[in-house]
Amino acid sequence: MSVIILGIESSCDDTAAAIVQDGKVRSNCIAGQEVHRLYGGVVPEAASRAHLSHIVPVVQQAMEQAGVALHQVDAIAFTRGPGLMGSLLVGVSFAKSLALSLQRPLIEVNHLLAHVASNFADPPMPNFPMLCLTVSGGHTQIVQVDDYLDMRPLGQTLDDAAGEAFDKTGKLLGIEYPSGPLIDRLAQQGQARFAFPEPQVPGLDFSFSGLKTSILHFLQKHTAANPDFVKQNLPDICASVQHRIVTILMRKLEMAAAQTGIREVAIAGGVSANSELRRQFQQAGQRLGWKVYIPRLEYCTDNAAMIALAGYFKYLRGDFVAHDVTPMARWSMV
């Protein structure tokens, strides 16, 4: 018998909806919000307002692209958190009233668990246990995955996320938000010839706030001597910063693999689009004999396919929530 899940995601600035049928993504739609570019970051009230205007068209589009009618949907999965409270509330409220109207069960999904689940969208399916490095604008963590829904973080960032490190560097360099993609492109024309210190963080945790400060001091020092320093060296600066961020990530991931002995290794989240991270990840895989998994790009940045996928596995377990469920701005996956 066929199972159809509608997934709804509204944790940050993108409103997204997707249909997953029997574990296969049938549609994956997203409405982004250009407004935040102007302000160099997400404005929570503006994001919440945009979600309310986007949610019906996006869900409708997901249904149409999948060729599925609402009455065929077996359950509604939604992002409960973590994320911006005002944003989450729109998706959660809409999901609940859809579920009530259609008399279907509701499935809560943790956004971070869903990032990992984006690795289950396409074959080959990973074997468990697996390690996943989740790197996005809001999160950076290494997760041990023992089953589709069974996972626990082994380490995470103590301050900024890796995507934030890209975005904050971009702000210092006058690159528009979100800066990660452009830094990536500029870096391809540059040399990583400026050295930034590696943070000393014990275990499998990360820290990026010291890097941000050292970049700021580096830029202040050089622009004092040469006001055109940034303009003249932009590709090299980008390559250097990117190199540092990626080596911080890879060193901890290799450490996690060595400690656990796990050789099924995946990446997920918006920053896994980064070409340098992908290159170093593939290289480490070859060097260390890992089987590596990288989700399709559209499942890396915020999307609802991953929510519907995680929802599908929860559906198989009968893991539903009652209607008194409310969003959780902070919600660790265990």
Partner: peptide, 13 residues
Amino acid sequence: RIGAATAKGICFA
């Protein structure tokens, strides 16, 4: 917005 999003869900469904 909670009221509006809830209303939209019912109207849409």
